[in-house]
Write a protein that binds this DNA or RNA. Structure first.
Lengths: 229, 229
DNA sequence: GACGCTGTTATGCAAGTGTATAACTAACCG
DNA sequence: CGGTTAGTTATACACTTGCATAACAGCGTC
């Protein structure tokens, strides 16, 4: 993309006008620009110059806010992972403590936009691919993943407890693994081929699947219909 | 890894000895080296020089067998995807036409090494991340993914037919989506945290989960025990 | 309204990138 | 054996990358 011989004048004038933004705002902008670059062109497309152009600044500014490019990348990774798991977990806060509805809400939050999103998947996959090689990313990767699974496990535990069906820890673990797998798998399918699913279809499949996996209903048909509206 | 100032003398002599390999062999070596580089250092670590060093040749040779680096990368992607789906599908050939055992074998093949493997996941994720951006990869990506899901759907259809339980196409589709999701999700979990699972545990969880999802048994407990040995 | 701090730009640099091309040489044929 | 071909190496080149540093200028302060 040879659009500008030099880093990018941004305006036609000699020295482009610029306005100073607070540190918090600039860091956020840079992280957002990084995620956009990774989503559109992959991790290798996220060069300091591409990121800077996207954020509307020049490349040098990145080093003013981050010790190196890798730190920015890592911050971006933490941002998107936190956004994803945070969104799913936040859905629990709005629901009364009925375990059935809590798990259903968790599923719905995980299987709808903005978590179901091709760009989010692209970023996740790019980072995950390099996580094996890069120890700094690897640790965060594992932490987020296991944290999500723990959340699932505690939700499943609540559900069994409320239903009066005691389960051994090993059995609970297996249930959590299976439920987590369904969520992950449906998430991938939704991100990759979102256009082949009706709006709430993935959520419905997810709820039905979890009900069958656990042998418990998450909501009565009428309640589900109301919730899904 | 600054080991050699120039492309790499490979031997101490003036011009290193080399032996000619057949075209098929060299192409395969280059593809293998590419996969190794991607697995260890991510897609951006797969430079022509790194690949060439790994394959025991010099960088220029790549252009002799592939029009450009991108063609090699694409060939490597096709190779690993074909290996994965091929391994799972090949497992069907060895099993008598009992749909229950066929689906069980398919699950086992998909949830064990060499398909369950951290390096395989790393490569898959790296490519998937860039597939969104790169149309050439995107098409192959979708094709392999939907091909796998179609395979699952036909296996599930066989199973229902053998059990005498007719299902509407829309219902069959949903079952296939759910089963596919469980396979994908367990595959990811196994690749990321393979050390936290007992040898055949993922396969057992997979079979149990699919049985619950479909409301059918894939094998009697005794048969399963024999099969898993 | 001039000053000074620091956020921001402009510019340079060494290393690394993919690709092009020429030189070499292993292997095959006569 | 000598000649030919094509697989392989060596080298060069234009470009990009992350990073360093100096010049500049927005903005709060007195």
């Amino acid at each position: 993309m040879p659009d500008a011989p030099h880093p990018a004048p941004l305006t036609g004038g000699r020295r482009p006008k610029f306005r100073r933004a607070g540190e918090q705002r600039r860091r956020q902008d840079l992280i957002e620009a990084t995620l956009a670059c990774v989503a559109e062109r992959g991790l290798e497309g996220a060069t300091v110059r591409a990121i800077a152009r996207r954020a509307g600044v020049t490349a040098g500014l990145i080093r003013h806010y981050f010790p190196g490019k890798q730190d920015l990348v890592q911050a971006a990774y933490a941002a998107i992972m936190g956004r994803m798991t945070g969104h799913s977990k936040a859905a629990l806060g709005d629901v009364e403590p009925d375990p059935r509805r809590r798990l259903a809400a968790f599923l719905a939050a995980s299987l709808e936009p903005p978590v179901i999103d091709a760009r989010v998947f692209s970023v996740w996959a790019s980072f995950s691919g390099r996580a094996t090689a890069e120890p700094s990313l690897s640790a965060a990767h594992r932490a987020y993943y296991l944290g999500f699974r723990d959340e699932v496990e505690s939700l499943v535990a609540e559900l069994f407890a409320a239903a009066g069906r005691p389960v051994a820890p090993s059995e609970l673990r297996r249930h959590a693994i299976a439920v987590n797998a369904v969520i992950d798998g449906l998430w991938i399918e939704g991100c990759l081929a979102g256009d082949s699913f009706a709006p709430r279809e993935l959520v419905e499949i997810g709820i039905t699947s979890v009900e069958r996996l656990l042998g418990l209903r998450l909501a009565t048909p009428s309640a589900r219909k109301a919730e899904l509206t």
